[in-house]
Design a protein around this nucleic acid. Sequence first.
DNA 1: CCCTTTGTTCGGTACCTGGCGAACATCAGA
DNA 2: TCTGATGTTCGCCAGGTACCGAACAAAGGG
Lengths: 121, 121
Amino acid sequence: MPALSSPPSAGEMTLPRLLGALSDPTRLGIVRVLSDGAERGWGELRAPVAKSTLSHHLKVLREAGVTQTRQEGTRCFVTLRRDSLEARFPGLVPALLSAAVADGVGAHVTVGDEDEDEVVG
Amino acid sequence: MPALSSPPSAGEMTLPRLLGALSDPTRLGIVRVLSDGAERGWGELRAPVAKSTLSHHLKVLREAGVTQTRQEGTRCFVTLRRDSLEARFPGLVPALLSAAVADGVGAHVTVGDEDEDEVVG
DNA sequence: CCCTTTGTTCGGTACCTGGCGAACATCAGA
DNA sequence: TCTGATGTTCGCCAGGTACCGAACAAAGGG
């Protein structure tokens, strides 16, 4: 795939941008999935949107400084940039995550095995 | 002026809505101004936008459950709904406010005396 | 009863956002 | 080298947002 056009760039981490990035339920869900600090494969993410849309969401998160993407061959692996976030906005992301979990926001985003289709039922 | 069309309605307080409301620098500035808990007069708010735009921002904040507006005669007074926010999203708003202050976001919104025009530096 | 004040609403504009499918670029494998 | 897998990018569309000035509604003051 084409090279990632937008490197994370720490200087671009502004509060309005972060909040804008996290004001979408699907993106909040992605952050929830990544919140345990583990690296997740792109194809492992399960969200009820088209591939292009998911790519878009991941780009927004990346450009807001929320996530970091590593490329390995033809695959991508995503991680939450917890340290940078905590350094720049202390306590914000944890509070955000507990609120999201408590409210059930973003629960439609999950992780699944690579070649596994949408779970029905 | 017309009656407030949209009462605060506690059930409408969702996380994405809150984040969307606070993803705008001007609205973050309004929240900063109100963050000391004091009630502020509408006309006391100083923001570099038109009256109609300021009204719009206050409406967004009100509908997101962030603020409360009281009408007294022909004037309005605005307060931050700190308790409801803290109850529903513990620690979130304080973290948000410290981050905003640290980053200087929303500093263009201030309070001034009633009949005082734009302060020109 | 008019007229001012105060904030809301309306109409309009320009831009941004989320959604999709299709096309593309890149890497790995046959 | 051709083929498949993997994400990204490209239109495109529908809807939302920020912004303004102007028109409006409501309450008070002359």
